[in-house]
Amino acid sequence: MAFINVKRKEVQVKIVYYGPGRGGKTTNLEYIYNKFNDRIQTEMVAIKTHGDRTLFFDFMPFDMGQIKGYDVKIQLYTVPGQVKYDATRRLVLRGVDGIVFVADSLAVRREKNIHSLKNLQDNLATYSKSIHKIPLVMQYNKRDLSKQGIPVLSQDTLEKDLNSRLKAPSFLASALEGKNVAATMKKIIVMVMVSLQKELQ
């Protein structure tokens, strides 16, 4: 739920990276932070447990500057992917404007992707939001693993499993190498801004 401050001419947008545990959500944010920090001048806030797993969420705000007279502030969040943290996942989703679903291309994670997407749908429903209506981008992460001979799911399989009904824009990506990380983020920001504008008209 974007908050638009008419007095300060400011829009605050919340984008959440969702997906199964160890899928690379935090790595997406870390790449953006490391790569662009000199340009976006931000701080990344992370609440982690032992072993580097996201406990609550990672958070990275940045200022996009003026767009149509409004100062646009983007706030990127990740959720903890592990199944047991469903309550915190739901908390982070509160007031979300757009979602990047980070799917794990590892063949053995196929089921986990599907469960996590279903979980996203259920959690959005608790805020009376539909996964079919909210701005959503699919990211099929860890494509770099195929080079190492590790079995990965084909793009077709991932599309069929996750995106056959949603028909969201999708990217093959490697968050570790930074491939298509920025593209994914740019896409979701554009989609959210367009949907905000539509709503305001």
Binding site: E43, F56, F59, P61, T88, L91, R94
Partner: peptide, 19 residues
């Protein structure tokens, strides 16, 4: 203060404490 991070954490923290 970095009020944007503060706000994100305060909201998350409040949710956690309520639960």
């Amino acid at each position: 203060h970095d009020v944007y991070s503060l706000a994100a954490l305060a909201a998350g923290n409040f949710g956690a404490v309520s639960t």
